[in-house]
Each structure stands twice: as structure tokens, then as C-alpha cells.
Computed example of a mutant assay.
Amino acid sequence: MSNVDRALRVSSELFLSPTWPAPKQIKAFVSTRIGGVSESPFDALNLGAHVGDNIEHVNENRRLFALATSMPDSVQWLNQVHGVTVAHLPFDSDIESADAAFTQQKNQVCAILTADCLPVFFCDETGQNVAVAHAGWRSLCAGVLEETLACFDAPEKVMVWLGPGIGANAFEVGGEVREAFVAVQSQAELAFKAKENGKWLGDLYLIAKQRLAAKGVVQIYGGDHCTFSESSLFYSFRRDGQTGRMASVIWFET
């Protein structure tokens, strides 16, 4: 299969685009695990360079994904640490420790990597401000969505799309996780369902919606995938342990 054919296969089968009424200049995509060159357990379109995969395979996968999405070469990858720091792009160093990226510069790609954590996309109605956040439970609880939203002028004019993350029927946690969320926002109780084994099932999508709504966001979309159960489409760290990563990217063209 030629590189062009491979890229066409990627573009036709394997990335998702947000279902939201964003301005036409907004470009946003989430990769899946299909169509790349990585071998098991990273098969096949692994875009994470930090998981133990062959770096040549990762670089080829990134090239194919960029070709398939017509993504500019301005992407700056983050060192994700499950915190709340938002990197304002472009930045000068090779990599910056942060769990969200924001830009007001056209053709500057914001990117994060996930394999169960929620990728959360942001844009405003002008189409001149975009961001993407890596919302694992720790960063979600600590306020990464609120920190990202603070980069925008008016929450009511911001639209958000919740990309593929672990679903409410698969995210089993201990009581300490539930208590941490409830301590921040009491209505988070609604996002947890008790199990007979003393554990809880947590709905990160619902928590994200609650936290965003509390800050005035009224345009919230997505939240209808599960990385754990949709094994043919998505990587899941909780399901597989050693595995690849999907990329979530966003930029605006003009």
C-alpha cells in the first residue's frame, strides 16, 4: 500500500470530527487506532511517543494523520502531567508540561493525547480562539476545564465538544475519587453509581458537563463514546495497560 493510499484509508475510516456548529474555519479531529504502522500492542495508528512504541512508527503515524487531516506542521506536543496548566501556543521550548493548549494564532495546532481520559475541544463563535484539554479524572477534578475556559472572554459564546473517553459503565473507582469530586461540586453525586463490591461507576462526561455549565457554558456537545468498550476504534489504558494513544487536534485557518 502506498503512502497516499494509506493516508486515504486513514481519512476515510479513522478519524472523528466534532459534531458541533463551529465556524467553518475551525478544523478539529480525533484519531482512532486504525490505519497506522505500529505493531501490537500499539496497533495501529499510535500517535504517542512516550508509551514504548518504535519511534519511527510513531513518526510515520503522525505523518499519515497530518496528511489525512491536512494538518499544518505547527503542532506542539505537550508533556501531560494530569494538572491544570494551559499552554498558550506557540511556545518556545520543544515541549511544555501542561494538560491543555490554547491559541489565538491561525494555523497553530493545539494537540493532546489520550487513551481513556476525556479530550475536550473548545472554540468561540468568532472562530479565532481554540483550545483542547486533557481531562483525566485528576485534572478534571482539579479544574483543567475551568482553567481552559478562562482563556476565553465570554463562556456563553464558547462551544465545547466532549471527545471519546471512558464511559460511565466502565469507569470504576473507589470512594475517595467520588469524594474528591463531590467536595468540589455537590451535584457530582449524580455522576456516581454504587456497585455491590463497594466501588463506584463514575460518569466523567456528566461531570464535565456539570463543571462547564456551572461556568456559564450552554453549548456542550458530544460525550457519546466509550474508549474502554469500543476496542476496535480506540485505545484504552484501563482495558489494555500498555497501549497506544489517540490525538485530539484543533486549529483555525483564517
Rank of each mutant, 00 (worst) to 15 (best):
S12V: 12
E13A: 06
E13L: 11
L14E: 10
L14R: 10
F15I: 10
L16N: 10
P18L: 01
P18G: 04
T19D: 10
W20L: 05
W20C: 05
P21T: 10
P21L: 03
P21V: 15
P23S: 12
Q25D: 10
Q25I: 13
I26G: 09
F29K: 04
V30G: 00
S31R: 02
R33E: 01
I34T: 05
G35L: 01
G36E: 04
V37C: 09
V37S: 04
S38V: 10
E39I: 11
S40N: 03
S40D: 13
S40F: 07
S40W: 15
F42E: 01
D43G: 00
D43I: 10
D43C: 06
D43S: 12
A44K: 06
L45G: 13
L45I: 13
L47H: 02
G48H: 09
G52D: 03
N54W: 07
N54S: 06
I55N: 10
I55F: 12
E56V: 05
H57I: 01
H57W: 04
N59L: 11
N59Q: 05
N59G: 01
N59R: 03
E60C: 06
R62F: 00
R63K: 11
L64Q: 02
L64M: 03
L64E: 03
L64F: 05
L67G: 01
L67S: 11
T69N: 07
S70I: 10
M71C: 12
P72G: 15
P72C: 14
P72Y: 06
D73Y: 04
D73F: 08
